[in-house]
Amino acid sequence: MRILILGGTTEASALAARLSGRSEFSPVLSLAGRTSDPRPLPIPTRIGGFGGIEGLAHFLKNERIEAVIDATHPFAAIMSHNAAGACARAAVPLLGLRRAPWKQQDGDHWIEAPSMDAAASVLGDMPRRVFLTIGRLELRFFASAPQHTYLVRTIEPIGDVLSVPNVLTLRDRAPFDEAAERTLMERECIDMLVTKNSGGDATYPKIAAARALGLPVIIVSRPGKPRDVEEVTTAEAALDWLEKHHCRTP
């Protein structure tokens, strides 16, 4: 059974590991290519886009893909909509592997923002020391608030994306540790954390650390994903879905 996994998440990696060595499956993992040194995985991997809905539909037909798992990042809305459109055109079953969002707990001081632009506005006029953990591509929104000092953590170098006077950069990748996150925020005298509601365990320690320190968190809400796509939240459930579809394949 030929399977395309649209990846870039820990869930995609977990599913790839479970499919590795299973002779009844022939999976390929697709990555967007935003990380120059992705972690190696035990199944064939392709890098780069497809060319929208039409390009992805052509790929599915040309490669005789029999099932697609959309395990992209919760904020990769365009890719998810393209996957839904392409699978509909190619008549290929599609499953969304979506991790659950974080839920606010007692002691959290969350300020929910509908967009990254709104999150930058919420920071206010008074200069603050802000910890940005939003990835590299959307840092540009915070150039509109140059009065703040930013600690930016990304996997890739940020270049000149955030052109403000005071920017400190830190290159690191998940998983993170709560004690280390707390130490980092205390050392850098952080006043506020800005993050996406990505969900999952790997980056949750920053939320727990902010709670422990009593820091406010500006948390950006997820964009909409296709509503008519079946969803599961774990790699195990995705594997069960694939096994059922494999049994139905003549």
Rank of each mutant, 00 (worst) to 15 (best):
I5M: 04
I5F: 03
L6D: 00
T10P: 04
E11F: 10
A12N: 02
R18K: 14
L19V: 10
L19M: 14
S20W: 11
R22Y: 11
R22S: 13
S23T: 13
E24S: 14
S30W: 07
A32M: 08
R34V: 13
D37K: 14
P38R: 06
L41F: 02
L41S: 02
L41K: 02
P42H: 12
T45R: 12
R46S: 07
R46D: 07
F50I: 00
G51N: 12
I53A: 05
I53C: 06
G55C: 02
H58L: 12
F59L: 10
L60V: 01
N62D: 15
R64V: 12
A67P: 01
V68I: 07
A71K: 03
H73W: 02
H73M: 06
A77L: 03
I78Q: 12
S80L: 13
H81W: 15
A88L: 09
R89T: 01
V92H: 07
L95Q: 06
R98A: 11
R98E: 14
A100E: 15
K103Q: 15
Q104W: 02
W110Q: 07
S115D: 07
A118V: 06
A120I: 02
A120H: 02
V122H: 04
V122A: 08
L123P: 01
L123A: 03
R128A: 12
V130I: 13
V130W: 03
T133H: 03
G135K: 06
L137P: 05
R140E: 14
A143R: 10
A145Y: 05
Q147C: 13
H148S: 00
P157Y: 09
V167A: 09
V167D: 08
D172M: 10
A179L: 11
R182L: 13
M185T: 00
C189D: 15
C189I: 09
L193P: 03
V194P: 00
T195F: 03
N197E: 09
N197S: 10
D201C: 08
T203H: 06
K206G: 00
A208R: 06
A208I: 00
R211E: 14
A212I: 00
G214R: 06
I218N: 02
I218G: 00
S221D: 11
R222A: 05
G224P: 02
E230W: 00
V232Q: 10
T234F: 14
A235C: 13
A237R: 03
W241K: 14
L242G: 00
K244V: 15
R248G: 01
P250L: 10
